[in-house]
Simulated scan of single mutants.
Amino acid sequence: MSVSDRFQRLRSSRGADDPPPSIEAESRAEHAARATVRGLQAGFVATLIMTAFRLPIMRSLPPSANFWAQYVSGGDPEEHPIAGLVLHVLYGVQAGALFGGLFALLDAERSIEAEQRGLVWGSVYGMALSVFGSQVMLKELLDIRLEGDELALFHAGHLVYGLALGAWVGSRTEGVRDPGKEYEYGDGN
């Protein structure tokens, strides 16, 4: 039986407009709110991990220090390390909240392997943020052009962010479980 056949069978067995079994006990708004909080937490942790990865390699502040210097306070970006780091964390937390909400809404009907899906979607999301950051934020907004090796490390940092984000959100996303079955660590979800 194909995946689409199973999906249609599931939809017809419980009604196309019914919420997935994993969130029947709570409203969609409550489910999305909890997922967004998970994303906030994940965004914070993933930003710390990305920053710890990037700082020793690139030996420079995140480009958010450039944003702060250019649009808020003036002066040299190196004069604003704390503001640049705080702004970078805020970007990461907000992006994490968005990812958490999207992951819950788009992935709510899946029941197994949330961790693996989190890693895949987190990687895609991290790279999408990286492309947006390099093309829009750096080139257009800040007029910064990274050299090839710097750009590769910029993308690598965002891939690390996406992996950490997806791992956190995926590992904390409840799947659809059979309420009458006892689960042990490692069997399914």
Rank of each mutant, 00 (worst) to 15 (best):
M1H: 13
S2A: 14
S2G: 12
F7A: 13
F7W: 15
F7P: 01
R9N: 14
R11W: 13
S12E: 15
S13D: 15
R14K: 14
A16F: 14
A16S: 13
S22R: 15
S22C: 10
A25W: 09
S27D: 08
H31G: 03
R34F: 03
R34N: 14
R34E: 12
A35S: 15
T36Y: 04
G39Q: 08
G39T: 00
L40I: 10
A42I: 07
F44D: 02
F44T: 02
V45P: 05
A46C: 07
I49A: 12
T51R: 00
T51K: 00
M58A: 01
A65K: 00
A69F: 03
Y71N: 08
Y71H: 09
S73I: 10
D76P: 05
P81K: 03
I82K: 09
I82N: 12
G84T: 01
L85Y: 06
V86G: 09
V86N: 04
H88C: 02
Y91V: 11
Y91H: 09
G92E: 01
G92Y: 00
Q94P: 04
F99C: 04
A108C: 09
E109G: 15
R110H: 13
S111V: 11
E113A: 11
R117A: 04
L119N: 03
L119F: 13
L119W: 02
G122P: 03
S130Q: 04
L138G: 05
E140K: 11
I144Q: 03
I144W: 07
R145S: 11
L146T: 06
G148F: 10
G148A: 13
D149A: 13
L151M: 11
F154E: 01
W168Y: 13
G170R: 00
S171I: 06
T173M: 08
G175A: 09
V176M: 05
R177I: 11
Y185H: 10
Y185G: 06
D187W: 08
